[in-house]
Structure formats: structure tokens, C-alpha cells
């Protein structure tokens, strides 16, 4: 690891001030992704501002009946929180599908949003990567791309966002609360992560001088009919090849509301509101789910090693929606 200097922030204002005008400084909280990337020399901050002791670790009720997840609440504490488990079971399941028990004890909710892709070429500083080194090219496009994107990619980057938690947050329509030198603002979850386009080095719409303070969950948690399905190369402790957050509201066998978001397929959690709209008013059965699944994958593009993800994602969507609806998987 390269040498760096270290300081600890005692307040959110301290933290924001420490980053202002210092493009080579980064926040560290859980450290599970950033320190790994620094060991790989894929990230090279000259200064770390430790925000892990800021009082942002609580999970609290909001006035509109939702929950506010502190940015520094640990993934494990969030997943096992009784309110999260009973009101947002899809979110709890998604968190517990990710990483390992040790990492979930360290990793924070804010850090989960800001983690970087696990693209091999991003990690390997000996290869080109437009995300790590803008303008250097994309090693994955013509390289080994089994884990890469099938939706929303560009000729500059086919990396995927690796989070499970974020896929559930996308489906739940969470809101990200951030603070910067100009005060506090909120970012709708769908607008927090970006598609790569020709600036794949920018993962999110968070300002370089801003800090995530909390994630707000709306009251609607789809607790009755929702699930998180993760398909991966081993049964535990692996990133998703494809994952699906599926949530439904059903009345008398008819779908009244639907949410559908995918992980492992794009540069951001991939929510498809058109496919959701197709489901509304339809019977909660396999044919409806299959039509929605086809719609989600309509623009999908495979590369040399990942085209299998397209039918895999279709089937995973049908299975997740079937599980959420409580109907037999076809």
C-alpha cells in the first residue's frame, strides 16, 4: 500500500471541511473496499479522513412512517434490525446475501453505496481501465468478461455495480441524504448511481465534497410479497452473476403494484419501471412474470463470456416474482 496521512473527523462538518479542496483525500468508514483497492493500487488517496466514529450509526423511524438507516450503521446491524426484518424483509435478505459475516460487521450502509466495481481490470493496475485511468481503454470489452454488464453498458466500460443492498434499495425507492459545503440535500435512489457513458470513472452523482449521512426508506416496504434472489457461482460469499429484488402488491390474484430491480447486470442497480407498469393489473402468474422478464432484457447485449446472463436474468426474474407472489415457480 502507498503511504498516506490519516485524520479522524469528529463531526459531519469536520468531515466535509477535511475533503474540501483536497481532491486526493477520501473518507474511510468500514474500510473493507477502500483498503482492498489501496492494496491493489487501484485507488491512491494521499489522505484518509476516518468518519467511522461520527454519530450516523442509528436506525430511526421517520415522520412519514419509514425508516432512516444511518450511513454508518453496519450492514449486519441493519440486516438484523427487527424493524428492517419485519417491514423490509427484501432488504434484510439482500444484505445477508452479500459478503461474509465478518465483512458485514465492518461495512457500513453508506460505504455499500459507494463501493467500486469488482471488475478484474479495474483492480489490475497493469491493464487499461477507463474507470481507474480515464482514456486508457477497457480491458474487459475484449478480455474476460463473464461477470460484466448486459444492460446499460457503453463502449468505454462494461463494469457492474457489485452491491446486493443497493438492488433492494432501488426497488424500495429509497432516498439518499447527503451533506456538503452548501448544506444538506436528498438524492432519489434511482439517480444516485450512474451509467458509464463516456465518463465511467464517475460512479455516482454524489459531489466530491459531499458525505452520505443516511438512507431513507419510505413506509411502503412490500413485506407481504417480496424477495431477493441471488444467483452466483457458489452458495455463499460470492458476487451476483444476476440478482433480482422483486416486490408486489396483490389483491384477489391481481397485481396492484410491482417493483423490479436487478443486480450484477449493469453499472448501477437496474430498475425497470416499464416492466413494473406492465405487471400492474395482470394476474399474479407465470405468464405475466415471463412477459415482464422479456421486457427487462429487451435491450440486453452480451459479450464473449457473459451472454448466458441474458436467459439467466429472464429466468431469475420469473422465479423471484413467483416467489414474491407465493405462486409455484414454473
Amino acid at each position: 500500500m502507498r503511504a498516506f496521512t490519516y485524520s479522524r473527523a469528529d463531526t459531519v462538518e469536520d468531515a466535509v471541511r477535511a475533503l474540501a479542496g483536497n481532491p486526493d483525500a477520501r473518507f474511510v468508514a468500514g474500510g473493507t473496499n477502500l483498503l482492498d483497492l489501496m492494496k491493489a493500487d487501484a485507488m491512491r488517496p494521499a489522505h484518509l479522513v476516518d468518519i467511522s466514529r461520527l454519530p450516523l450509526d442509528r436506525i430511526e423511524e421517520t415522520e412519514d412512517g419509514g425508516l432512516r438507516l444511518g450511513a454508518l450503521a453496519r450492514n449486519a446491524d441493519t440486516a438484523w434490525d427487527e424493524r428492517v426484518r419485519s417491514r423490509y424483509p427484501m432488504l434484510s435478505k439482500a444484505i445477508l446475501a452479500g459478503a461474509s459475516a465478518q465483512l458485514r460487521n465492518m461495512a457500513t450502509n453508506g460505504g455499500n453505496l459507494l463501493q467500486r466495481t469488482r471488475c478484474y481490470y479495474f483492480y489490475d493496475s497493469g491493464t487499461p481501465c477507463n474507470k481507474r485511468e480515464p482514456g486508457s481503454g477497457c480491458g474487459a470489452l475484449t478480455g474476460v468478461n463473464r461477470i460484466h454488464a448486459i444492460l446499460g453498458a457503453s463502449e468505454h466500460c462494461i463494469a457492474v455495480h457489485p452491491s446486493d443492498l443497493c438492488v433492494a434499495l432501488a426497488a424500495l425507492e429509497a432516498t439518499v441524504r447527503v451533506t456538503g459545503p452548501r448544506g444538506e440535500r436528498t438524492i432519489p435512489f434511482a439517480e444516485f448511481h450512474r451509467l458509464p457513458g463516456d465518463t465511467p470513472h464517475i460512479d455516482t452523482t454524489l459531489g466530491a465534497d459531499e458525505i452520505v449521512t443516511a438512507i431513507d426508506l419510505p413506509a411502503r416496504g412490500f413485506a407481504e410479497h417480496s424477495t431477493y434472489l441471488k444467483v452466483r457461482d457458489r452458495a455463499s460469499y460470492a458476487f451476483a452473476l444476476v440478482s433480482v429484488a422483486a416486490a408486489l402488491e396483490i389483491e384477489g390474484g391481481t397485481i396492484r403494484a410491482a417493483r423490479l430491480a436487478l443486480g450484477g447486470v449493469a453499472h448501477k442497480p437496474w430498475r425497470d419501471t416499464e416492466a413494473e407498469a406492465m405487471l400492474v393489473g395482470k394476474p399474479a402468474e407465470a405468464a405475466s412474470f415471463a412477459a415482464a422478464a422479456q421486457a427487462v432484457l429487451r435491450g440486453a447485449k452480451g459479450h464473449a463470456h457473459n451472454a448466458f446472463k441474458i436467459p439467466l436474468a429472464e429466468r431469475a426474474i420469473v422465479r423471484a416474482l413467483s416467489e414474491a407472489a407465493g405462486v409455484q415457480t414454473p
Partner: peptide
């Protein structure tokens, strides 16, 4: 040394973590 194997697991304030992915100063 990358948080993938768990050989470095220790308990900090009673909770298990990967000691390779945290700084001593933290």
C-alpha cells in the same frame, strides 16, 4: 490479505472482523 479467506479474523469489542481490512489507527 484481501478479506476473502478469513484467516485473519479477530474479535474487536466482541465482534468478528477481518483484521487485514482495517487500519490499526482506526
Amino acid at each position: 490479505d484481501h478479506g476473502q479467506c478469513g484467516a485473519c479474523t479477530v474479535l474487536v469489542d466482541g465482534r468478528r472482523i477481518n483484521s487485514c481490512l482495517t487500519l490499526a489507527v482506526m
